[in-house]
Amino acid sequence: MVGKSILLVEDNRQDEMLIMRALRKINLANTVDVVRDGQQALDYLFREAEFAGRPASDPAVILLDINLPRINGLDVLRRLRADSRTGLLPIVLLTSSDEEKDRLTGYEEGANSFVRKPLDFTEFAETAARLGVYWLLTNEPPVK
């Protein structure tokens, strides 16, 4: 559905390219905004610093890496869930972490989903495409 956007919080440019390619391949015409660390993600979502003039629309889903510079993804998740402006935004932890404690913490802190980045290129692209279809076309978000 055009009009819905994705916020990709990813510091690995190779992973970013794979995700972008997978979404284009399935013809999702949605905007994908990319930020490279946890502080940028918070600034983007709260419209602060370099994003102060950003339009007042929230992404349909946030694809959030856990291992980020400056502020890690789990801390970003905590801050977003603690604020009424972002408390209901769908957040998918998309990470290479295979740590059970990360998965448990993610869900305890309010992640909507925990997806491990596959190591295989084709499988990674398929996973990204399925995420895009689900969160942009299938999921019914709450009405504020």
Rank of each mutant, 00 (worst) to 15 (best):
E10A: 01
T138H: 12
N12T: 05
I6V: 14
P141F: 02
T31W: 03
E140N: 03
N139A: 15
D75L: 13
Y44K: 02
L137W: 02
D65N: 14
L74Q: 12
T138A: 13
R85Q: 06
V34C: 09
P55I: 00
L119E: 07
M20N: 03
V35L: 02
T31E: 10
E126S: 10
D75H: 14
V61R: 05
I62G: 04
R70V: 14
L93C: 09
Q39V: 03
I62N: 02
V9N: 03
P141M: 03
E108A: 14
E126T: 03
A129W: 10
K25T: 12
L68T: 04
L63A: 08
L137C: 13
K117S: 10
Y134M: 13
W135Y: 14
E48Y: 02
P141G: 04
L68G: 11
L131P: 08
V92Q: 11
P55T: 00
L119P: 01
L28T: 09
R130L: 14
G132L: 12
F51K: 10
E109Y: 15
R47T: 00
T105L: 15
R81P: 15
T138Q: 11
R21Q: 06
T127F: 09
R116A: 13
K117I: 09
Q39N: 11
K25H: 09
K144D: 04
S84M: 07
E109A: 15
E108I: 04
L137H: 06
A125N: 11
R24E: 09
A82D: 14
L18V: 01
I19T: 13
R81K: 15
P141D: 05
E100G: 05
Y107Q: 14
R47F: 02
L7V: 11
S97R: 11
M17P: 01
R47H: 13
P118R: 06
D33Y: 08
D83G: 03
E123W: 01
R54F: 02
I19Y: 00
Q40A: 10
E50K: 12
D33T: 02
A56G: 07
R36E: 01
Q39L: 12
M20G: 00
L18I: 07
F124P: 05
S57L: 10
E16K: 01
T122M: 08
R85A: 06
A129E: 11
E16D: 03
I19A: 05
I91K: 08
T138I: 13
G106A: 14
V61L: 12
L42E: 07
D33I: 00
E140A: 08
F121Q: 04
E50Q: 15
N112Q: 10
T86K: 03
A60V: 04
K25S: 14
S57E: 13
I6R: 07
R70E: 11
